[in-house]
Amino acid sequence: MINKIVKSTAEAVADIFDGAVVLISGFGEAGSPIELIHALIDHGAKDLTVVSNNTGSGHVGLAALIENKQVKKMICSFPRTANSTVFPDLYYKNEIELELVPQGTLAERIRAGGAGIPAFFTPSSVNTPLAEGKESRVIEGKTYVMEYAIKADFSLVKCNVADRYGNLTYNKTARNFGPIMCTAAKTTIVQTKKIVEPGEIDPEIVVTPGIFVTKVVEVTNPEAESKLVAEDRRYPCQ
């Protein structure tokens, strides 16, 4: 029998090792798997390379993981966000690395990683500092830069509804990087607001097919990052 459901967020993240490459879903707070990230803080794996569009805000979620010195390097498109001070402070002190990637290139590198495509050529960033030192090629008269796929050890993803096979649906713009991140990691760990029986999700509307998912944990009432930030909450709680 296939059953990808695990009982706790702690069990879900238990295998994450020091030095792992971890994809974390979300665009700002929408789709950010806060409870899985907090479980990773409790777990303590360090020297992580984290791939996520932003760097979190306040002192919870991704910002808290960074603040807890578990992240060696961030790969992202927009490291500045409103209420984002943790990453900038460490960056200014040279205590965290940054690889800045155009957002579409970031998405495509992850997609390619999941699709078994090692590299691709894109027009994005040609003639800019972000293309410097990278291989380029002229195809049909236009210059393109070569970008490598991103493949990860783990992905942490938030979805809306899941079944024990790992079939997933998402909520509105909280979908963002989730579906592609599910495909690009050796182990994909998903938190879902609701678990249903197989067949209850209409096969026509499954967004992430279960084959891409390793573990599913139910978090019925996930925290909203903006609310925690507004209340000046911290993780771990002090």
């Binding site: 498109s77 927009f78 940054l98 800045l100 155009p102 957002q103 579409g104 800019t128 972000l130």
Partner: peptide
Amino acid sequence: STGKPGAIPAVGGAMDLVAG
């Protein structure tokens, strides 16, 4: 980016938008 040293670079989707 103003290219000033020390400023944290952030690009978002701008380079993809102008390219496509």
